[in-house]
Amino acid sequence: MADIAETHVTPNPQMKVSDEVAISIQNMNKWYGSFHVLRDIDLTVYRGERIVICGPSGSGKSTLIRCINALEEHQKGTIEVDGTLLSSDLKNIDKIRSEVGMCFQHFNLFPHLTILENCTLAPIWVRKVPKKKAEETAMHFLEKVKIPDQADKYPGQLSGGQQQRVAIARSLCMRPRIMLFDEPTSALDPEMIKEVLDTMIELAEEGMTMLCVTHEMGFARQVANRVIFMDDGQIVEQNEPEEFFKNPKSPRTQLFLSQILGH
């Protein structure tokens, strides 16, 4: 998909990022039972950074970003999001979750609600926004992802690409400061991948802090200002995309890249 992304973004690897820390992960470890999924993860994300995380399946990349909004619990180390320490305190967890948007591989729209209701539900109940205001915001973001005319349909009536764009709009309606993407295009047809990537690229251009688990290397090359390669629950290598793709240092990275770019 590399060529698609290239046509839409002016290559600008030195995109400016601030010094403000958005997410700070220190010495984080996670186990599933006795299986050590994440090992000594240290990661600092600055505001406005667009990070792509890649790696073979089972390398813990999804688990890592799911730890950031506490969908998974970590057992050791600290995660701080926007200065709020992630602990077992439910109030903190809900606060962080309302600041961090998340898009899933399988969209996870609410099938019993219309597209508009999907988008307004959280603002109305969590942010206590008046219904009318929430609907205006929702329509604004639905226009942004270019499906305002589907607002009164149900998720089951939409194509996969449209559903994923609704899912992005739904997250944006909460006005998050950070967006997490968990393989947002892995369940989509090639044509639909493009429309979702376009939306994500637009979001990146507006300066949203993004963490994105994806296999779309074209997207990584053009949009990310940092690419992280994970294997066996560890961060093996991270670099600017230019360097990362041209001169991968670790043999594991080289092997991975040759496998996914080789065909």
């Binding site: 979750r97 609410f110 539900l121």
Partner: peptide, 18 residues
């Protein structure tokens, strides 16, 4: 219900009763 429904609700910041 798929686990994703719980996760989507959680990730939007809805508390348990909501």
């Amino acid at each position: 219900l798929p686990k994703g429904q719980y996760e989507a609700a959680d990730s939007l910041g809805l508390d348990y009763p909501q």
